[in-house]
Amino acid sequence: MMLSGQTGKSEGTGAILRLNARTAGSGEQAIMFAHGFGCDQNMWRYVSPAFEDRFRTVLFDYVGSGGADIDAYVIEKYATLDGYAQDVVDLARALEIKDGIFVGHSVSAMIGLIAARQAPELFSKLVLVAPSPCYIDEADYVGGFNRAQILELLDFLDSNHMGWSQAMAPMIMANPDRPELGEELAGSFCRSDPEIAKRFARTTFLSDNRGDLGAIEAQVLILQCREDLIAPLAVGDYVHAAIPGSELVVMKATGHCPNLSAPEETIAAITAFV
């Protein structure tokens, strides 16, 4: 992996640095992997290398996560998913991506949809891994949570501030269990500023982006896990039904992070689609 040495406009290069973007692989077509709430680009470490022989892979961290430029965090900009989608568009343009593939995990699935609507030329294929357009139940819609539970999460992140930052502290030390991860990852994985994590949680879990579903030019693949507490089956079905022509694959993997718990199956499903 290396920092891309694109010679774009200064603003473009800015996005590459700001979002700690890393490109690898060889291939005409680009495949961009976007992480969800909680962690960073390392969520894709078991998946992205499998695409390096055919594609130019792009990994990055959202502002406020991983190695992205924390000084670029603007409260208003990142209060909605549009701000994050703007960064995806900026980055894709800086890397001169056209007709690329966007793979978004969790909240990034919706971010990718918004970005693809803003700039349809960037991505011709979208892979939505464990997507949810709205986490809160409303009328007939089943998001999996009620409002009180989501507020409890925000409260938990708040009240757990101290315990949480302490929980993050050991990550700064080298990781004796998996020395191959190296210092860099041991220092940053899943570590984020508690204040920003709270805001990202608020943006993620209080957003209702059902309006961003609907017909879209790009081909769409939905990867749905079984027993996903965060994005249950019903939500995958809803997304599938709301995006005409989309393809839904229900994976054998359980939980919310098949990119970590079932990388092989995830790779196979994405490969079959692209």
Partner: peptide, 29 residues
């Protein structure tokens, strides 16, 4: 775990266990 903590577990703790192999001093209910 209470639902709020479940989200924290799924989005933070489980990924860390898979990538780092361990977590320590996680405060939760």
């Amino acid at each position: 775990l209470p639902i709020a903590v479940r989200i924290f577990y799924e989005s933070h703790v489980a990924p860390m266990l898979h990538v780092q192999g361990s977590v320590s001093e996680i405060a939760l209910d």
